[in-house]
Design a protein around this nucleic acid. Structure first.
Length: 615
DNA sequence: CTAGGGTTAG
């Protein structure tokens, strides 16, 4: 008998299809093992792992057993808990189990908690929590405690999770990490950092949780700092860690560090060739670092590509203004039968938008649902509004907003407002802005944009009205800043009007010199309507000179080797005056300049920008 | 058995 049991155990372990399991089960019945709970539990677990619905096979098998043991009961509970929408069956089996007088196991509870967390059924979770106390012994079980914490975290009640943590008689690194992640996801990195500091033994997952926490909270520099500490602590990197680190690099846009991360990825066996995930992340990272060609190299080297890889590359081409490459890639993926998803289409539509390919964009939009089964969402409508707006068709864009099948959100109105800035149309701008002030009362950028549009139309009453509104709502202008990677990999950040940089006087002198040369050779005149304040022309000129991207540019011109491209990152949208200066600077210095603002990339080369002065 | 993960839009 024992021999047969282990035999069947082995057979079940090797099953990879429903059919095979059925064959093994038939054998089992043949040998008279239809009441062997140990093997039946295994059978149920295997079926559930393969995704066979519980009612299809496991349930009838179970119902023929006269006295199930706790393992078989638990297999049923777990099976239903893993199946979508079967929480009630799962709980039903738990109740039957209790009525039958069977004593639950620790993983009976963990299965239930897992489902409660997945469907955010906190009420039920609490009841089962009470049960664990009632049944006794389980509250102190490490594994039960961890899954219980996880349930409370998923239900969004951090306080309860914390209480469980505090009451656990022993905790392991999983318990700590659970709590760290919970706080990180809630945006409280300070608390996460405190917990991490207290954690006695930090493993790879715990370190990664910190890296990811910073990366997802838009604090890439701290993410990279933690990653450095992790490496120094001798903890090995894996695929998951890399993805977060790569995402941090993408946010920062710093190429030297990015290159070193790529080397780490390749030497740890998770390079673009081996891992689709890392590969796709690298594609995104290089695109956002301004190196769209390197991104494409990585893309081409990848052994496998999926919808993420293609979407990332398409988006990469789009943000660099390479519309045709983006569209070509889209057709390639369709030909290879990789099904595009909603993100893919955002990339394609953005590409059309940045290249003013209105008809092309419309065709893609129309085909989304018809040919690819992707229903346009509000984000896709945003792209269309942007497409029409950039092409100067404001009325049509407005019409789209008024007739779209869902409620327009801030993104949609924002796209319209953005278009009004370039086309200098204060009346539609006001209309869009009014919606935005309702939908996003605290988004400072909208106020700045409207006042910008009023300012360039000379409508100073409008400007002061907007400023009054901002004052009433307690909003302050976002400080603009730019950063640039020095030759040694250090990041130098400049704020507008910054005087604290050690090379400040040198930078200021060089900037004056550059502007004078631009005036002499290119007939440059400061674009005074880029200034939103009603100031004298001289004051406006002075203010324009302090813009952070100009400081960063000059720092780059002075310190970065002549053959290298100057790459500058900026947190806000580049202003028109700075754009003109960058064009001119690329011409008279013969240098290639790339600026990533919060919208897209600008490649300045020989006096021209890849955005075609159209952004 | 429990903890960490990818692409997007103004």
């Amino acid at each position: 008998m024992m021999f047969l049991q282990s035999d069947f155990n082995f057979l079940l372990n090797g099953c990879t299809s429903f059919k095979q399991i059925k064959q093994v089960h038939a054998q089992l019945l043949h040998r008279g093992l239809d009441q062997c709970c140990y093997l039946l539990a295994k059978l149920v677990r295997t079926l559930s792992k393969l995704g066979v619905p519980m009612d299809a096979y496991s349930r009838p098998v179970f119902e023929r057993v006269t006295s199930p043991n706790p393992f078989l009961w638990t297999a049923m509970i777990r099976g239903y808990s893993l199946q979508d929408g079967c929480l009630s069956q799962s709980v039903g089996f738990y109740c039957r189990m209790r009525r039958a007088g069977s004593r639950p196991l620790s993983f009976t509870f963990s299965a239930l908690f897992k489902t409660c967390g997945a469907v955010k059924e906190m009420g039920l979770g609490r009841q089962i929590h009470a049960q664990t106390i009632l049944v006794g012994g389980f509250v102190s079980d490490l594994y039960v405690g961890n899954t219980l914490m996880d349930m409370y975290v998923k239900c969004g009640v951090l306080g309860c999770a914390r209480r469980v943590f505090d009451e656990m008689p022993e905790r392991d690194v999983v318990s700590w990490t659970e709590l760290i992640v919970a706080h990180a996801k809630g945006g409280d990195m300070e608390l996460a950092e405190d917990l991490f500091g207290e954690l006695p033994v930090k493993d790879k997952v715990a370190w990664t949780a910190m890296v990811t926490g910073y990366a997802q909270n838009a604090r890439p520099r701290e993410a990279l700092y933690i990653f450095e500490r992790m490496k120094n602590a001798g903890v090995l990197t894996d695929e998951v860690t890399l993805i977060s680190v790569i995402s941090a690099c993408a946010q920062l846009g710093v190429s030297r560090y990015a290159n070193s991360v790529r080397v780490v990825a390749e030497t740890s066996g998770f390079g673009a060739c081996e891992s689709v995930l890392v590969g796709s992340a690298l594609v995104d990272m290089y695109s956002k670092c301004g190196s769209v060609d390197v991104a494409f190299e990585v893309f081409e080297k990848m052994k496998q590509r999926n919808v993420y890889s293609y979407s990332s590359m398409i988006a990469g081409f789009a943000m660099h203004g390479r519309a045709h490459a983006a569209i070509q890639l889209f057709h390639d993926m369709v030909k290879l039968e990789i099904k595009p998803n909603h993100v893919t289409f955002i990339g394609v539509l953005t590409a059309c938008s940045h290249a003013s390919l209105v008809e092309q964009g419309r065709q893609v939009f129309a085909s989304m649902e018809k040919h690819y089964g992707v229903a346009p969402s509000v984000e896709h409508y945003t792209c269309i509004v942007d497409l029409l707006g950039r092409a100067g068709r404001l009325e049509e864009a407005l019409k789209v907003i008024e007739t779209m099948p869902m409620e327009p959100n801030g993104g949609v109105w924002g796209a319209l407002l953005g278009a009004c800035r370039r086309l200098k149309n204060p009346s539609i701008a006001r209309h869009a802005a009014n919606h935005l002030f309702e939908l996003e009362p605290n988004a400072i950028g909208n106020y700045m944009l409207l006042s910008n549009i009023y300012a360039s139309a000379g409508m100073w009453d409008g400007v002061s009205e907007v400023r009054k509104l901002m004052r009433e709502r307690g909003l302050k202008k976002n400080l603009g800043y730019s950063w640039i990677e020095a030759e040694n990999g250090e990041i130098h950040q400049f704020s507008s009007g910054d005087t604290i940089h050690p090379m400040y006087t040198e930078i200021k002198r060089a900037l004056e010199d550059l502007l004078n040369r631009l005036k002499a050779h290119n007939g440059y005149l400061p674009k005074l309507d880029s200034v939103v304040y009603d100031l004298s022309d001289d004051e406006k000129k002075r203010l324009l000179m302090t813009h952070s991207e100009k400081l960063a540019l000059v720092y780059g011109l002075i310190t970065i080797d002549g053959g290298c491209t100057i790459k500058i990152m900026k947190n806000l949208r580049i202003c028109e005056d700075c754009h003109v200066v960058m064009c001119g600077a690329s011409k008279i210095t013969g240098r290639e300049i790339i600026i990533r603002d919060n919208m897209r990339f600008h490649h300045f080369c020989d006096g021209k920008c890849s955005c075609g002065d159209f952004w």
